[in-house]
């Protein structure tokens, strides 16, 4: 018989979510206005449920020519002033992936030292365009972020908010891919009648549903199961 701590592991599983937003100039106006409504909605959901408050840790990053941590991963009940996303520059996926790797490494180490159990975080990645940087650079940053040796390599779900964006542009940045895991993620490109702002509003809804479902998910062994990706049934207008 294993020792009781190993046999009876009741440490709390923290769920880490990141929102990664493209703030290149093409997102200025209605799309970013819609993005700026996501954080207040997520915070409301967390604050209405102490259980979610105790287990969900949420962070936000933006990227243009460079990437920035807009909201460090943490307990959303502590957020007094909700940060805004504002437009600037081009679309460097490489900068985004590098910043994400840095943040995740730091944040997960912090959560573990605080006594939480933690699985791979989830990244909701919102963009309206292809990267403007060198592709080999983007690939290298992505490889580093999703390196199998990196225990915090995230689940990445890219959302393209305009129909003009091809899925082929987003699919390389999905992680894990079907060949890599039986819990593969996928990309989504909006194909409905609305505009980018409508698409972003729908992302907010599936993000919140995913957070709520993840909090009660159970794995095959009956333990807390961690991240539950969006349900395709809630994304009828997306391909």
């Amino acid at each position: 018989m294993a020792d009781s701590r190993q046999a009876n592991d009741d440490r709390v599983l923290a769920l880490a979510f990141y929102l990664l937003v493209d703030v290149s100039y093409s997102m200025d106006g209605a799309p970013l206005n819609a993005v700026n409504k996501i954080l207040p909605e997520v915070i409301d959901t967390i604050e209405e449920s102490p259980t979610l408050g105790d287990i969900v840790r949420f962070g936000a990053l933006d990227f243009a020519d460079d990437a920035r941590t807009v909201l460090p991963l943490g307990d959303l009940r502590d957020v007094e002033s909700i940060p805004n996303f504002t437009a600037r520059g081009g679309t460097s996926y490489a900068a985004a992936f590098r910043q994400l790797r840095k943040d995740i490494e730091h944040d997960l180490a912090q959560l573990k030292s605080d006594g939480y159990k933690v699985y791979r975080p989830a990244v909701f990645f919102i963009t309206d365009g292809a990267p403007t940087d060198n592709m080999s650079d983007v690939q290298a940053a992505f490889n580093d972020l999703t390196d199998p040796g990196f225990r915090g390599r995230p689940n990445i779900i890219p959302f393209g908010v305009t129909a003009s964006l091809s899925k082929a542009v987003l699919d390389p940045w999905v992680s894990p891919k079907p060949a890599e895991s039986n819990k593969a993620m996928r990309s989504y490109v909006y194909n409905g009648d609305g505009d980018a702002a409508t698409a972003i509003k729908q992302i907010a809804e599936v993000l919140i549903s995913s957070i709520v479902a993840s909090a009660t998910s159970v794995n095959d062994a009956g333990a807390a199961g961690g991240f539950v990706p969006p349900d395709d049934d809630d994304l009828d207008d997306w391909i």
Binding site: A7, N8, A221, G222, A223
Partner: peptide, 20 residues
């Protein structure tokens, strides 16, 4: 299944044994 963070000790023990 029991909701996470509400499992009684016997369920936690069985889960841990199953995972091992």
């Amino acid at each position: 299944p029991h909701t996470p963070n509400w499992q009684p000790p016997e369920a936690l023990l069985a889960s841990a044994a199953l995972q091992r």
